[in-house]
Design a protein around this nucleic acid. Structure first.
Lengths: 141, 141
DNA sequence: TATTGTTATACTCTATAACTATA
DNA sequence: TATAGTTATAGAGTATAACAATA
């Protein structure tokens, strides 16, 4: 009856994860859109990237990434520079202000959740600690 | 050092949950928008509701819910009726077609996740089983 | 008057199509 | 010619403001 168990667990897990992600989304207080924040995070993770690479990473079309980068650049959160050898390409990288905003945004989000976690028992915290990497593996599988 | 542990766990859990929810969102193959699906699910959970109650439940403004219900009603997924005693209010309820679509949508979403769960060990499945209700409690806290 | 829902209008985010500049 | 990015334009989803109907 393994498959029955998995089907039921899948249903329960999906609902729980979606509810928690929705709640976390509501608790954010950033002035940037999800894609703008994600773009900053991707730049932090990968260092400098071309506009096309960023569009592929965020799964948006190039014109959309053009707008995202234009906004972030105007806000001083990323810098745009010409590619050293290919004049067609545009290189984007995180500015110190962008990195700082990302860190503060991240801390704000974590703050709400950390407060909730403080109300859990040690056993529940242990369960969550073990579950987090498993959820991560599921997301990447 | 309890708070340090919780802060780190909060960060890890938030990332894992967001990644998995994003992945699950990508795996959906519904023709309805997230809000439209959520509205059907809320109606299934609560039975008949007024348009104002639905707007509050989904955290959208009344005009937005007017549009959602108009679309779902045109599609035959919900029925609209007058309130028995208050002529201003509009009562919405799920039709059999709406319930069927919801069930099929849910099964489609569960299918992908169940397939991934099948690759986990018994111990990992047990961890996830215990974690799901805790995530739910976090979402509702 | 206050409340429920609708209509009118605008904004944000993203897409496709057409275009410019460089390879 | 092919490719990287931009500009022009359109569509989906949601919001606020103004309005109509009912309490």
């Amino acid at each position: 009856m393994e498959s029955v168990t998995e089907a039921r667990l899948a249903s329960a897990l999906r609902l729980s994860v979606m509810r928690l992600s929705r709640r976390m989304r509501q608790e954010r207080s950033s002035s940037l859109s999800p894609t703008q924040i994600a773009t900053l995070a991707t730049l932090e993770r990968h260092g400098t990237m071309t506009l096309g690479e960023l569009a592929a990473a965020e799964r948006v079309q190039p014109p959309s990434m053009t707008r995202v980068i234009a906004f972030l650049s105007d806000a001083g959160l990323v810098s745009r520079s010409a590619h050293p050898t290919d004049g067609r390409q545009v290189i984007a990288s995180l500015t110190p202000a962008g990195a700082a905003l990302l860190a503060s945004d991240r801390a704000q989000r974590d703050e709400w959740l950390a407060g909730r976690l403080a109300a859990l028992s040690a056993e529940e915290l242990a369960t969550i600690s073990h579950a987090a990497p498993i959820l991560d593996a599921l997301a990447n599988s």
